[in-house]
Design a protein around this nucleic acid. Structure first.
Lengths: 343, 343
DNA sequence: CTGAAAGCGCTAACAG
DNA sequence: CTGTTAGCGCTTTCAG
C-alpha cells in the first residue's frame, strides 16, 4: 500500500542508504543515480513515514531556533504558549526547540541571536523581531546557508524568509471600519489614532479603515500620530476633542490606548464616543467591561505561535512549502460577553 | 534522559513484552508483577514514545469511527474537513478513520451505524447526532465495552460519552445580546426567534441572550417558536412586525433565517431593523453583504472536527482524558469585512 | 503466565 | 560514491 524507501531501492537496484541520501538531498551520489531515484520516487508517489523518521532521529533531534521578545510581555507569552503546544505535540517526533529572548528595541541583539543559532547548527529559525536592516541581513545569511526562516507576528519585509505568519493588518482595519459603521449609521465623524504612518505595518490598518469608509458618509476628521508615547497621545487627543466637538467615534489603530482613553475621560466624553481598538491588554479588558471601549479586534497569538512551528516542521520534515508567503491567522472581534467565564 | 519500556523491564527484572502487556492493560500478567511494573513506571515517570508506538502499529492501525450527517450538508462538510485535517496529521501515527454518514432525522440509522462500528472493533467513536434515546443507548453500549465516545457539534445529554466538543450556546446568546446593545443604545425593543424552546440546546442561546439584556433597558417583546419551518416563520414574524411597530431589532437564535428575512423585507423594513443571527450559510453571507443582517455569530466547524479527533487520539494513545466534559470551540463574530478576500 | 525475537520505515556510521 | 549494518522504542507473534 504505502510505498517505502526500500521499495524504491529495489526498483532502482540500489541500497536503502543511497535512496535516503537522494531523498534528503545529502551529497555523495552520482547525478544519474540521483535522478533515477528521484524519478522512481515521484512515479511511486513516495511519501516519507513521519513516525519512522522521528524514531530514527530520536538520538540527535532536529533543532529549531526561536528568536522573540521576552515571554514576560503578556502578548508574547501567549505566542510562546502556542509554540510550546506545537512542540509538545511534536516532542516525540524528533524535534527540539531552542529559545532566545531579546530586547526588540535593539536590533543588534536579535541579529546576534540569529547568528548564534546558525552557529549552533539549527535546521530552521522562527523570528519575531522588528523590521530592521541588521535583522534582515541575518535572515538572509541563514537563507543563504539553506536554513529556512519563518517570521511570525511581525514581518521583516523584503527578506528571504520563507513566509510570514500573523495578522492581516489591512483586514483588521477594514473590520474596525465595519464595526464603526454598524454603531454609527449614516453620517458620522471619527478620529483615527496611529503610532506612526512611516512604517508599512502601521499604515496597513489605517488604510484598511480608510478604504472601507471611503464608500460611506462617514468621515475621518483627523489622523493623529503619537509614536506610542502617553503624553503625546494625551495632548494630541485632547486637542482634537476640543477642536471637533461633533466627534462620534475613535479608532485606535495602534498607539497608546491609555493616553487616548484618559484624554476622552478628562473631556467628560467617557462612554459617549464609540471606540474601537486592537488587542486585549489587561487595561483594555477593563475598559471593555466598563463600556468605555465598544470593540477590540484581536490577533490570535496562540495560533500564531502554533502555526509557525508547524509550518517549520512540515517544511523540514516533508519539504512542504507553505501555500502562500503570507499566512494570516484569524482576527477576531471581541466584546466583553466573549470573555465571561460561564458556569 | 527519556525513560523507555526497556529500562522499566530491567529495573523490574522482567522482559519488555511483559511491561508492554501491563502498560497497555492487556491480560495475562500476574497481579503482583503487574503492580510492581506499574509502580516502577510511575516512579520513573514513564511516558510512551508516540513515534515508536505509531511505527509498531503500522501494520494494523487503530481504527476510529465517525458517525455524522452527510458531508454534503455544507456545515458538516467543514466539520469533516477538520477531522480529515487531523487524520492527515496523524496518518503516519497508526490511526485510520472510518466514516458513516447518516440521516440525522432518523435516529435508528445513527444507532445502527454506531452498532456496526462497535462490531468492526473500532477503538473509539466520534458522534454528531441528535439527542435521542436510541443514540444514547448505543453510546452507552460502546462505553460499556470500553470504547470511548466523543460527541461533537451537538451533544447527547446524559450519555456516557467522554466529552462534548462544540459551541457554547449560552455564550453565543450572550454575544448576540452584547452586539444588539452596542447597536441599539439605551431603550430598545427586540424580537427573538427560536425553532423550539423544548430542547435544552435551543433554549441555551435564548437564555444567554435574555440574561444579558435583563440588566439593561432593552426589552424582548416577543419570543417566536417556529420549528424551522419557512411558512410558519414567515407568518409569525409578519404578525409580530405588524403588532410591534416600534421594533428595533431581531435576534434569530435558531430557526429559519430565510423565512424571517423575507417577512422583514415584505414589511418594507429591510435594513431598518438591527438583525443578528448564527452561522454562515450562503444566504446569510449574501444578506450580510447587503447590510440586511448586521452580525452573524459563527461556530468554528473546522476546529470542532479537528479537536474531536485529536481528543480521541490523545485519549487512546496517551490515556490523556480531556480537561473538561465540555470543550467549547471559539465562537466568532462575523461582519462582511471579515470575509473579503484581500489581494 | 512470561521471555525471546522479529519487524515497523528510516537514519547514520562504517566499510568497501 | 555506494552497500551494509545496527539501531530508534514499541508491539506482536511464537515458544516455552
Amino acid at each position: 500500500m504505502t510505498v517505502t524507501i526500500r521499495q524504491i531501492a529495489e526498483k532502482a537496484g540500489v541500497s536503502r542508504g543511497t535512496v535516503d541520501r537522494v531523498l534528503n538531498g545529502r551529497p555523495g551520489v552520482k547525478p544519474q543515480i540521483r535522478e533515477r531515484i528521484m524519478a522512481i520516487a515521484h512515479e511511486l508517489n513516495y511519501v516519507p513515514n513521519m513516525a519512522a523518521k522521528a524514531l530514527a532521529l530520536n538520538k540527535n533531534p532536529v533543532k529549531f531556533g526561536v528568536v522573540m521578545p521576552p515571554k514576560e510581555i503578556a502578548f508574547f507569552g501567549e505566542v510562546r504558549s502556542g509554540i510550546t503546544a506545537a512542540a509538545e505535540e511534536l516532542k516525540d517526533f524528533g524535534i527540539a526547540v531552542e529559545y532566545r529572548y531579546v530586547d526588540n528595541r535593539r536590533p543588534e541583539e536579535g541579529a546576534a541571536a540569529i547568528g548564534q543559532l546558525i552557529g549552533e547548527g539549527v535546521s530552521g529559525i522562527l523570528v519575531s523581531l522588528m523590521d530592521d536592516e541588521l535583522i534582515r541581513a541575518r535572515i538572509n545569511d541563514a537563507a543563504a546557508q539553506g536554513i529556512p526562516v519563518v517570521t511570525f507576528n511581525s514581518d521583516v519585509g523584503e527578506s528571504k524568509r520563507v513566509c510570514f505568519v500573523g495578522q492581516d493588518l489591512y483586514r483588521s482595519g477594514q473590520i474596525a471600519a465595519g464595526l464603526m459603521r454598524r454603531m454609527l449609521r449614516g453620517k458620522a465623524r471619527v478620529l483615527v489614532l496611529a503610532s506612526s504612518m512611516s512604517f508599512q505595518a502601521h499604515r496597513s490598518r489605517v488604510n484598511g479603515f480608510r478604504d472601507v469608509l471611503s464608500g460611506t458618509e462617514m468621515e475621518i476628521v483627523q489622523l493623529i500620530q503619537s509614536y506610542d508615547r502617553y503624553a503625546d497621545t494625551h495632548s494630541q487627543v485632547s486637542d482634537a476633542l476640543a477642536r471637533h466637538t461633533d466627534l462620534d467615534g475613535i479608532y485606535m489603530a495602534t498607539g497608546d490606548v491609555a493616553g487616548c482613553l484618559d484624554a476622552v475621560m478628562r473631556a467628560g466624553l467617557g462612554g459617549k464616543l464609540r471606540m474601537v481598538c486592537n488587542d486585549l491588554l489587561p487595561e483594555v479588558e477593563q475598559w471593555l467591561r466598563q463600556g468605555l471601549i465598544d470593540f477590540t479586534i484581536m490577533q490570535n497569538p496562540l495560533r500564531q505561535g502554533y502555526t509557525s512551528l508547524r509550518i517549520m516542521y512540515d517544511l523540514i520534515f516533508s519539504g512542504k512549502r507553505p501555500e502562500s508567503e503570507y499566512l494570516y491567522t484569524e482576527t477576531s472581534i471581541i466584546i466583553p460577553e466573549c470573555l465571561e467565564r460561564n458556569p
